[in-house]
Computed example of a mutant assay.
Amino acid sequence: MPEAPPTTAPATTYAALHADATTLLAGWTPTSPAAAVARDRTLALLAAGPVAMSREHRPGHVTASVLVLDATGTWVLLCLHGKLHRWVQLGGHCEPGDPTLVGAALREATEESGIAGLRIDPVPIDVDIHPVGCQGGSLHHDVRFAVVAPAGAVEQVSDESAALGWFPPDRLPEPLADGTVQLVAPARAALRRSPLRPAP
């Protein structure tokens, strides 16, 4: 039986977000050779149009995630994913109401951490492509950012997480999701480069 075509809704509901993601990645200087390859593959995916921002797009879709640092940059916040049963950075799918990819990442970080007042650097720290179970099998083209929590922040576990925890960057918990450890160095570099600021 032929596969049903994707709905046409994302063509309008994700149009602005798609334009933002395309501009952001086209102008980004990758932080590693692997990130450069993933960036180019993601730009090729985005050539499909706004549907590439939606989980309905079976070949793959763009997601947004963050590595949350404490105010000193010496601890990182990770969640024990309820379905994957691995420690991962915070993040997830883009939604039609997200104004920008940075905004999607900040929304996900706030929802999953329960922390108000997070600050995000608008320059990506990584792009990673990995298989997931969405729509019976797909690829996440995950654009990743650095976020800093305010001093004294207290996290709250969301419905998507089994646990949240702060860890020293050189002693991350196990089992750890592939690709999470590679975010530590560029996230700390982003913090040193400039004060992280609220997303637009």
Rank of each mutant, 00 (worst) to 15 (best):
I120R: 01
A48E: 05
E3T: 12
A38E: 13
G133N: 11
H141Q: 13
R119D: 04
D159A: 13
W75Y: 01
G97K: 06
T7F: 00
L84N: 03
P2E: 03
A146I: 05
A15T: 01
L80K: 03
W87N: 02
S113L: 09
T74M: 00
E111Q: 09
A16L: 04
E108I: 04
R171Q: 15
D178I: 13
V184Y: 06
G133A: 14
G27N: 14
A185W: 03
D40W: 08
Q135T: 13
G27S: 14
L183E: 05
Q89H: 06
R197G: 04
A187C: 10
T23C: 01
L183F: 08
L176T: 13
V154R: 14
A38S: 15
D178L: 13
I125D: 05
G91E: 07
G49T: 01
A21M: 03
P6W: 01
H141F: 14
D40P: 06
Q182H: 09
T63S: 12
A151W: 01
D40Q: 15
R107H: 12
D128Q: 13
V68P: 02
G73V: 03
D142F: 05
T22K: 08
R107W: 12
P59N: 08
R192E: 10
S32D: 07
R58C: 02
L106C: 06
E56L: 14
W28N: 10
L118D: 02
T42P: 05
A104Q: 04
D126S: 15
F167P: 11
T8K: 00
V184C: 04
A9Y: 02
R192F: 01
L172E: 06
T63D: 00
L196H: 05
A104C: 04
R119I: 00
P150I: 11
